[in-house]
């Protein structure tokens, strides 16, 4: 299945602002994490500190199952203010 990933802040330097990822059916956030690390291992530390959002909600727990053509937002630690 195909997942559309949006990144923000410093994560863009590792993966670009948007990236499309192919994953096996019933893949979860942890599978997406592993795929991104595979694409750019240098981004692993930052990815570990990221929060993940789907449908305008933050996902708590990396076992969240993804759907085909789902948009996922990967958000590094916030630095507003």
């Amino acid at each position: 299945m195909r997942i559309f990933v949006n990144t923000f802040g410093p994560l863009k330097d590792y993966f670009g602002q948007t990236i499309t990822i192919e994953l096996e059916n019933k893949a979860s956030i942890i599978d997406l994490f592993n795929k991104l690390v595979q694409i750019n291992p240098k981004g692993e530390l930052l990815l570990k500190n990221c929060q993940w959002a789907v449908n305008n909600n933050i996902i708590y727990g990396k076992n969240y199952e993804l759907n085909d053509k789902q948009e996922v937002f990967v958000m590094p630690p916030f630095s507003g203010g």
Binding site: F8, P10, F73, M75, F78, S79, G80, G81
Partner: peptide, 8 residues
């Protein structure tokens, strides 16, 4: 600062 998804 801690919870809003904003980056500087």
């Amino acid at each position: 600062k801690h919870e809003a998804p904003i980056w500087k």
